[in-house]
Amino acid sequence: MTPTPNPVQALQQRAGASIISGPWPTYSQFKGFPERERWTIYELAKAGRRAMEEKGFEMSEPYDAFVRRITQELQL
């Protein structure tokens, strides 16, 4: 019996780069933090995404949508 492929691994684009389709971490639980800490979390979220992209992962969520979602969740 052939194992069922992982759906994330099954999606391929450009030279075999995996497309990461989620689920995405949510940041709304941090909206009560002071603004300075929320900006730090925002920068960490962007750095995490950038690191994954540098490793060759392709995100299904466009960057603009990612930034819009994170800023809304953190109320920035």
Rank of each mutant, 00 (worst) to 15 (best):
R69Y: 02
E35G: 01
I70Y: 01
G32N: 00
P7G: 11
Y42K: 04
P3N: 07
M52D: 14
S21A: 14
G32E: 00
F30E: 02
A10I: 02
K46S: 04
P23Q: 03
S28D: 14
Q9M: 09
N6D: 14
G48D: 12
E58V: 14
K55Y: 08
P25M: 11
R69N: 06
G48V: 07
K46H: 01
M52N: 15
R50C: 08
P5T: 07
V67D: 11
S18A: 13
W24E: 15
A47T: 07
P7R: 11
Y42R: 03
K55A: 15
S18T: 13
P23D: 02
R69C: 06
E54S: 04
S60K: 04
A17G: 11
F33R: 10
E53F: 03
T4S: 10
Q72H: 10
G16A: 04
G22V: 02
M59F: 11
S60N: 06
A47N: 07
P25V: 11
K46G: 03
P23N: 02
E54R: 03
E53I: 08
W24M: 15
I19S: 04
A15G: 14
V8F: 14
S21E: 09
P5W: 01
P34A: 10
R49L: 09
V8A: 14
Q75G: 09
P5A: 08
Q12K: 15
R68A: 15
Y27Q: 01
E43F: 05
V8H: 09
R69T: 04
G16F: 00
I19Y: 06
T40G: 13
E43K: 06
P3M: 03
L74H: 00
A17I: 06
G48M: 08
T4M: 12
I20D: 08
Q75A: 13
L76D: 02
A17M: 11
T2V: 12
Y63R: 07
T4I: 12
T26G: 12
T71A: 05
A10Q: 07
T71W: 01
R69S: 04
I41G: 02
P62L: 11
V67Y: 07
G48R: 12
Q13N: 12
T71M: 08
Y27M: 01
W39R: 07
A45Y: 01
L76P: 04
I19L: 10
A45G: 01
T4G: 10
W39M: 04
E43D: 09
A15T: 13
P62H: 08
E58G: 08
R38N: 01
M59Y: 05
D64V: 13
K31V: 05
L76E: 00
L11F: 07
P3W: 04
P23R: 00
K46A: 05
T26S: 12
L74M: 03
E61D: 10
N6L: 12
G22T: 02
Q72T: 09
A47S: 09
T40E: 14
P34E: 08
P5E: 09
A51M: 06
I41C: 02
F66K: 07
L76V: 03
L11K: 06
